[in-house]
Lab assay of single mutants.
Amino acid sequence: MAAGGDHGSPDSYRSPLASRYASPEMCFVFSDRYKFRTWRQLWLWLAEAEQTLGLPITDEQIQEMKSNLENIDFKMAAEEEKRLRHDVMAHVHTFGHCCPKAAGIIHLGATSCYVGDNTDLIILRNALDLLLPKLARVISRLADFAKERASLPTLGFTHFQPAQLTTVGKRCCLWIQDLCMDLQNLKRVRDDLRFRGVKGTTGTQASFLQLFEGDDHKVEQLDKMVTEKAGFKRAFIITGQTYTRKVDIEVLSVLASLGASVHKICTDIRLLANLKEMEEPFEKQQIGSSAMPYKRNPMRSERCCSLARHLMTLVMDPLQTASVQWFERTLDDSANRRICLAEAFLTADTILNTLQNISEGLVVYPKVIERRIRQELPFMATENIIMAMVKAGGSRQDCHEKIRVLSQQAASVVKQEGGDNDLIERIQVDAYFSPIHSQLDHLLDPSSFTGRASQQVQRFLEEEVYPLLKPYESVMKVKAELCL
């Protein structure tokens, strides 16, 4: 049975990233139509530049190519590739079939990587351009969430054990800070992308030097003109047959890092959902379990974690691919890159769409948070109580021993009897502590235990987050809708 299948058929496997999760716009960027249309555009740009620099290419040939950029006979191309065992030459023939007058000058002087690699770089750039505003929107939604809850005390956790208090907004800023680093890295790697350009079979530009009869300047002009037509500021000066596969490492490393950030955020949300302090959106008709109707599973956060793990592992592909590119190139890269580049971007696209949807509907339960604080705060307040007693004339050592005994009794009630923490009640009825009984409410005010959390939130948002989001103001209103 021949390899390949009808990918629109229910009898043929289709990647869930495309069929179930990723956005239509990201799927289109990695589609065959987008790819092969870009090949034709690159052939047109090459012909236009070659004509401008004096090669015998007519206006009629150029116009014929322009008129057929979208006229792609995919069936013919597939048949040609089956016959020739070469995808680029299959599309040269297919393009030439609908451009008979231009057929002889299509791909003039070029090698397969002229269309293959340059198209990949265009796709990487455009895919990054799709991700950047999506990530900015996630940051914006979380920034709104953090600002609104900047002063809401909550129990902090280290080692997932109760620690000092923080605020809900401050905790959210930990998430935002990681995503801001990801946004900066995505922008950097996007701006650092260079075009492969017009380089020939081993990167020496020998074929173009021959076409222009040894004119170095025209060869350099050709490279520059096509690079500018493709919208790049610069091209690699040095290439082998391909652009260095280190570029793929750079791009997928940034995406993998984004995956790590999203995994951490969504894990926190899942843990908070278990504590009943916070939940992701839950639709009115949504079913959490087929057997347990009360369940409210954090399905979206779980999906993000599941896909983020996949995204983090994909960076190993370009690392290994770059390491086995012998001399000017081997074909070890080809099949692998067809999979890992598309999957990385479709996965990143999915987790950003999902995280935006989550961040637009996060639900906080202040009463649950308050109750958990009441359970733990008495123990945390013991040092403040000791200091207040010393100020009232008591002995630190005597007070410490009193607190120690009462704390152990209260802990026994919590752990052995399943009761509430009654340390404060014990202190309130103990005559030894009568000098500070009137101060206990103040000493137990949760806001006095959150330090500068709310001020940190305000400063972080104003100095770091809002300036970073400013270039994306025009796209901030787009909502994230999930079908599944």
Rank of each mutant, 00 (worst) to 15 (best):
Ala2Phe: 15
Gly8Val: 15
Gly8Ser: 15
Tyr13Val: 14
Ser15Gly: 15
Ala22Gln: 08
Ser23Leu: 06
Met26Thr: 05
Phe28Asp: 09
Phe30Arg: 01
Tyr34Val: 04
Lys35Met: 13
Leu53Asp: 02
Leu55Ile: 14
Gln61Ser: 09
Lys66Val: 10
Lys66Arg: 13
Ile72Thr: 09
Lys75Gln: 10
Ala77Ser: 13
Ala77Trp: 08
Glu79Ile: 12
Met89Thr: 01
Phe95Asn: 07
Gly96Glu: 09
Gly96Thr: 11
Gly96Asn: 06
Ile105Phe: 09
Leu108Phe: 11
Ala110Ile: 04
Val115Asp: 01
Gly116Leu: 06
Leu121Gly: 08
Leu121Phe: 05
Arg125Lys: 14
Ala127Ile: 01
Lys134Met: 05
Leu135Asp: 03
Ile139Phe: 06
Ala143Lys: 05
Ala143Trp: 05
Leu155Gly: 01
His159Ala: 02
Pro162Thr: 04
Leu165Glu: 01
Cys172Thr: 14
Gln177Gly: 13
Met181Asn: 08
Arg190Asn: 09
Leu193Ser: 06
Lys199Ser: 07
Gly203Tyr: 05
Gly203Thr: 01
Leu209Val: 10
Leu211Ala: 08
Glu213Val: 11
Glu220His: 10
Arg234Lys: 10
Ile238Asn: 02
Arg245Gly: 01
Lys246Trp: 01
Lys246Asp: 07
Ile249Lys: 05
Ser253Asp: 03
Val254Lys: 09
Leu255Met: 13
Ile265Glu: 03
Thr267Phe: 08
Leu272Pro: 07
Ala291Gln: 03
Met292Arg: 02
Lys295His: 00
Pro298Tyr: 01
Ser301Trp: 01
Arg303Leu: 03
Thr313Lys: 06
Leu314Phe: 13
Val315Ser: 10
Pro318Ala: 08
Gln320Met: 11
Thr321Gln: 12
Ala322Lys: 06
Val324Ser: 10
Arg329Val: 04
Asp332Trp: 06
Asp332Gly: 04
Ser334Tyr: 04
Asn336Leu: 11
Ile339Phe: 15
Glu343Ile: 06
Glu343Tyr: 12
Ile358Trp: 04
Val368His: 06
Ala381Trp: 03
Ile386Asn: 06
Lys391Gln: 15
Ser395Arg: 05
His400Phe: 05
Glu401Asp: 15
Glu401Gln: 13
Leu406Thr: 07
Gln409Cys: 08
Ser412Trp: 13
Asp422Ile: 08
Ile427Ser: 04
Val429Arg: 15
Pro435Phe: 04
Ile436Tyr: 04
Gln439Leu: 08
Leu440Gln: 07
Asp445Ser: 14
Ser447Met: 15
Phe449Pro: 03
Ser454Leu: 09
Glu464Phe: 05
Pro467Thr: 11
Pro467Ser: 09
Pro467Val: 13
Ser474Val: 15
Val475Gly: 15
Lys479Gln: 15
Leu484Gly: 11
